[in-house]
Design a binder for these strands. Structure first.
Lengths: 202, 202
DNA sequence: GTCTATATAAGGATAGAC
DNA sequence: GTCTATCCTTATATAGAC
C-alpha cells in the first residue's frame, strides 16, 4: 500500500531545497551553513532534519533534478526528425538559455557546486554529463556529414556552447536593459552562425 | 635602505601560492585546508605562516595576478591601431584560450573562487572585471559602427566570449586527442565568424 | 624557518522535551 | 514537527621550543 505523501510535506521539502539552491549559488556549498538554510526557511537548523537527511542530500536533489530536465529536453529534440542538425542545435541552445534565465540558482549549483557531491553521486553526475555531451557531439557530426556544418571539432563546439550560456550568470547580476528574448536571440545568432557553411552568394 | 629579498624567500612563497591554486581549483577554496596546502608543499601547516599572512591572502594573490595579466594584454591590443575590431577580438579570444590552457589552476580560481575574496578585495576585483568587460564592449561597438560586425548587443557578445572559453576546463580533464592549437582555432572560428557581416559573394 | 601543541571558533548532526 | 542544548569534528591561526 503506497503511502500518501501530504502536500504540506512536499511543499516544506521543496521550500528547503529552493532556499538551499539560492544560498549554495550565492555563497557556495561549503560556505553555506545549515543555520543559513534554516534562517531562509524560517526555522531552526535542527528542524530541517525532519525533512531532509543531510546537507549533502540537498545538493543531490538540486543537481539531479536539473540534469533530468536537460536530458528530458534532449530526448524530445532527438525525436524531431523533421529538424536538421542546425535547427536541433538552435533549439538546444535556446533551452539552455531559458534554463539559465529561469532557474539560475539550481542550474548554477548543478554547474559549479556538483563537484561537492559525495561518493557515488559525483561519479554518477559526471557520467550523465559525459553522455549528454556525447549526444550533442553526435548532432554536430551529423550536420557535418550532411554538409550544413563546417569542418570543426564537435567536442569543441559542444564545450563552447555549454559554457557560453554560463555568461547569463552575470547578466542576472547586472540589471541591464537587455531582455531575455534579446539575450537568447543574440546568443543563438552568435553561436550558430559561426558553424554554418557560408553561402556562395547572398 | 631597501631590504633585499632572497630568491629563496620568493620561491617558497611562489611554491605555496601555486600549490594553493592547484588545490583551490580542485577542491574549492573553502574545502581546501591549510593542512592540504602544507602537505602539497611538504611542510606543516603552521610553517606556511612564515611566508603568508592568511589563507585569504593566498586567494588574493591568485586572483589579482591573473586579473593583471588580462588587463596588461588588453592594454597591448588596444595600442595596435592597425588592427580592426574583428582582428582585435580574435587576438583577445586567443589570449583567453591560451591563459585557460596554460594556467588553468589560477585562471579557474580567479573565475570560480574569487567570490570568496574578503571585504575590500571582492569589490575591487569585481570592479576590475566590470571595467575589463566595458573595454571589450567598446571594441565590439567600434566594429559595428564601422560595419564589420553585425547588429548585436555588445554586452552579450562579451559575456558569450568570456564564458565560452571556460569550457577549456573540461578539455583539460578529458585527455582528448584535440591539440591546444585546434582548440584555439576552432573556438575563434566559432565565436568570431558568428559576428561577421556576411559577404555578398564568396 | 620549521616543528609540536593548542587556543578558539564554526559547522553538521543528534537527543530529548514539548 | 519544532524547539533548546549539545556532541563531535574540523579548520584557521598562534605560542613557544629548537
Amino acid at each position: 500500500m503506497a503511502r500518501i505523501i501530504s502536500n504540506k510535506d512536499n511543499n516544506r521539502k521543496e521550500v528547503i531545497i529552493l532556499a538551499a539552491a539560492r544560498l549554495f549559488r550565492e555563497k557556495g556549498f561549503n560556505a553555506t551553513g545549515m543555520r543559513d538554510v534554516a534562517g531562509e526557511v524560517g526555522v531552526e537548523a535542527a528542524s530541517l532534519y525532519n525533512h531532509i537527511r543531510s546537507k549533502a542530500e540537498l545538493l543531490q536533489h538540486i543537481c539531479f533534478r536539473i540534469a533530468e530536465e536537460f536530458t528530458s529536453q534532449l530526448n524530445e529534440v532527438e525525436k524531431l526528425h523533421e529538424l536538421d542538425s542546425i535547427q536541433k542545435l538552435d533549439s538546444i541552445i535556446r533551452f539552455h538559455v531559458r534554463m539559465w534565465v529561469e532557474k539560475p540558482d539550481e542550474v548554477l549549483v548543478a554547474n559549479n557546486e556538483s563537484k561537492y557531491l559525495k561518493d557515488p553521486f559525483y561519479d554518477s553526475f559526471q557520467n550523465e554529463r559525459r553522455i549528454y555531451v556525447r549526444r550533442l557531439e553526435t548532432i554536430i557530426e551529423e550536420g557535418m556529414q550532411k554538409g550544413i556544418i563546417r569542418k570543426i571539432e564537435p567536442y569543441v563546439v559542444v564545450l563552447t556552447v555549454m559554457s557560453a550560456v554560463r555568461g547569463i550568470e552575470f547578466w542576472h547580476r547586472t540589471k541591464k536593459n537587455i531582455s531575455a528574448i534579446q539575450l537568447e536571440n543574440d546568443m543563438v545568432m552568435m553561436l550558430v552562425d559561426g558553424l554554418r557553411i557560408r553561402d556562395l552568394k547572398a
